[in-house]
């Protein structure tokens, strides 16, 4: 007896990767706008590493990180999207890949980055899923462990984008922000709590990290759900 294919499954994946599957949509255009804003946010220094986070769960970090990675790759940059959300890893689901090796196995030196990162159907875009989640995942993101990772990854890629847990849930996003060239804070319109967003911003600033901008996600526009960008603040 054959099981029915899970149609809704693939559809939702395509919706999540809109910059790839529907590059002419308004949303894809917005992601390209964010890309340009990021590139122009630093004149004298190249942004090579970016943390994508938010104050609270479900604001659109993973969606934003994945689509940003796609639009940078479309521009010809060699991009690595890293799932550093060890609280709720989803990148391997979005790109339909196994997660038996990934960031954690690279950081614990059980696998090498070049053999662990997965190529995608999208040119120039590689994915590093989270890997198996150890009981105390935060320890792995300390700069002591991460330094070596940054050295290797920067040699292989032009841009490394990290999907992370919410800033206010665990310290991981703060810790990573500190080690990256810039941070993008995703704020979901109508859902995000103003005080929490302010707190998250303060936490990132106190980690001596640079906020490149705030993405206002899911702002209702006419009939569509789209993306806005606020620029530097």
């Amino acid at each position: 007896m054959a099981a029915k294919p899970k149609k809704s499954n693939m559809d939702s994946k395509k919706r999540n990767l809109i910059a790839e599957y529907n590059p002419k949509s308004v949303a894809s255009e917005q992601y390209r706008t964010i890309r340009t804003n990021i590139q122009f946010s630093a004149i004298d220094e190249d942004i090579r590493t970016i943390t994508v986070s938010s104050s609270s769960p479900g604001e659109g970090k993973s969606t934003t990180a994945a689509n940003l990675a796609i639009v940078f790759a479309q521009q010809g940059k060699k991009v690595l999207l890293v799932d550093a959300d060890m609280r709720k890893p989803t990148v391997h689901f979005t790109f339909n890949m196994m997660n038996t090796i990934g960031l954690t196995t690279v950081l614990t030196r059980q696998s090498e980055l070049d053999k662990t990162a997965n190529q995608t159907d999208i040119e120039n875009l590689d994915i590093l899923s989270s890997g198996p989640i150890p009981p105390n995942p935060s320890e792995l993101l300390s700069s002591r462990v991460m330094n070596r990772f940054f050295d290797t990854a920067k040699n292989m890629y032009d841009l490394i984008i990290f999907d992370t847990p919410p800033v206010l849930a665990v310290t991981d996003a703060q810790v990573l922000s500190h080690q990256c060239d810039g941070t993008i804070l995703v704020v979901r319109a109508g859902i995000a709590d103003k005080d929490k967003v302010t707190k998250a911003k303060e936490a990132i600033v106190s980690a001596k990290a640079k906020i490149l901008g705030v993405v206002l996600n899911d702002k209702k526009m006419k009939s569509n759900d789209e993306y806005y960008y606020y620029g530097n603040n």
Binding site: M1, A2, A3, K4, P5, K6, K7, S8, N9, S12, K88, T90, F93, N96, M97, M98
Partner: peptide, 23 residues
């Protein structure tokens, strides 16, 4: 109206194909 792929997953497992999973 559908089975969430639970039977197909068993099929894929035995054939050595990767599973279709969601978060």
């Amino acid at each position: 109206g559908h089975d969430f792929g639970v039977f197909e997953n068993a099929d894929r497992l035995l054939k050595g194909h990767s599973l279709q999973l969601n978060p």
